[in-house]
Design a protein around this nucleic acid. Structure first.
Lengths: 191, 191
DNA sequence: GTGTTTTGCCTAGGACCTCTAGGTATCCCA
DNA sequence: TGGGATACCTAGAGGTCCTAGGCAAAACAC
């Protein structure tokens, strides 16, 4: 029997594609094995288990996503940068729903520690906010607000959570405007 | 053999409790059957299938949640109302993670149409924003922004997504302040 | 109270999934 | 060219969802 030429990376890539098709939580080792014309038990030489595969997809997607965001943000500052960041974020989430879902899974803390994609994401996000002149702990608060809003928006949108007929793209643009306003008039600790 | 006295409602309640313990996506018909000392096939007289059970939990949780929010918001307006809404929202999401996850699942559009909990949620949310004097389509955009931020925040927090040592409650309060600022200075269609 | 219907839970079993243990065939390289 | 590492295999245990059909308990008719 000819060998299928499996590697962890090829499996991860195929799993990511499959996730975009059928949804991240519907990615199964059996389906992946079928895709390569191989028995499911064969995958365990390349990948520890399903959890391991999912984590690999998460890191793949996280890396891809921050790369696209970095390109979009490059050379921009202030509101321009914010809009570019937001646009690239949402575009990725909508184009690659399975990969995006992977980025939101809970990941073992020991693996998170030395993940370059995560540090890169933090760098770019904090860098984007530089123009607003915030300092810690406001900076961290602002980053959390942005992450939450971007993620919440994409999650709700791709779950079909926005029923009203209002165009989502326009709502999104307005939300980004509103976040810009909030960042420019950031409420400090005075109640 | 004595009967276990199963009903769709008892199953839904138990499934919701189980979800809070082990996570919504780990709720299984087998586990639920074990909990009642019954074979899993027996559940299918009361519940159509797993999807049906999950949808029931979603509606249960959605109703509970909006009830708690309604109590918190009652008699308040403007920033007070916003803070109360946000506080009740996050409290529910953190106290009942499994139920909260259920509220975020994709639900068949035909079931959504006549769900009182959803209409109630919309009413209360739009009502809370009345003090900000927004009109359509800004109102819808603002509601979407709030929902997205609240949901994104709770989702990230309960997924352990906030690594920095900064206290999450304080960040949350600041985020609510920032949203208030954004609502008061809502960016209209002038670019 | 008896007979009938409805209902609740049962057993049996198929399909699919994850994962382990151990075997065989293929590739690489000394 | 032989030996070792490696890639894929079979076999099988145990979990899940779900259907089909059966029996016994409850509810109802009289």
């Amino acid at each position: 029997m000819a060998r299928a030429g499996l590697t962890p990376d090829r499996l991860t890539e195929a799993a990511a594609d499959l996730a975009d098709e059928v949804g991240f939580e519907n990615v199964t080792l059996s389906a992946l094995a079928r895709h390569f014309g191989v028995k499911d038990a064969s995958l365990y030489s390349h990948v520890k288990n399903l959890q391991d595969l999912r984590t690999r997809v998460a890191f793949l997607a996280g890396g891809e996503m921050i790369d696209r965001i970095a390109v979009a943000v490059a050379g921009r500052a202030g509101k321009d940068a914010l809009a570019a960041f937001a646009g690239a974020y949402r575009a990725y989430a909508l184009e690659r729903p399975g990969r995006y879902a992977a980025t939101q899974m809970r990941i073992d803390q020991s693996l998170v520690a030395d993940a370059p994609a995560l540090r890169r994401t933090a760098e770019i996000t904090y860098g984007m906010l530089r123009a607003y002149g915030l300092e810690e702990p406001d900076l961290t608060d602002a980053v959390r607000l942005l992450r939450a809003t971007f993620h919440g928006y994409c999650a709700l949108e791709s779950a079909g959570g926005f029923g009203a007929p209002r165009d989502v793209q326009k709502s999104w643009d307005r939300a980004v405007d509103a976040l810009h306003v909030a960042l420019e008039n950031w409420p400090h600790d005075t109640p």
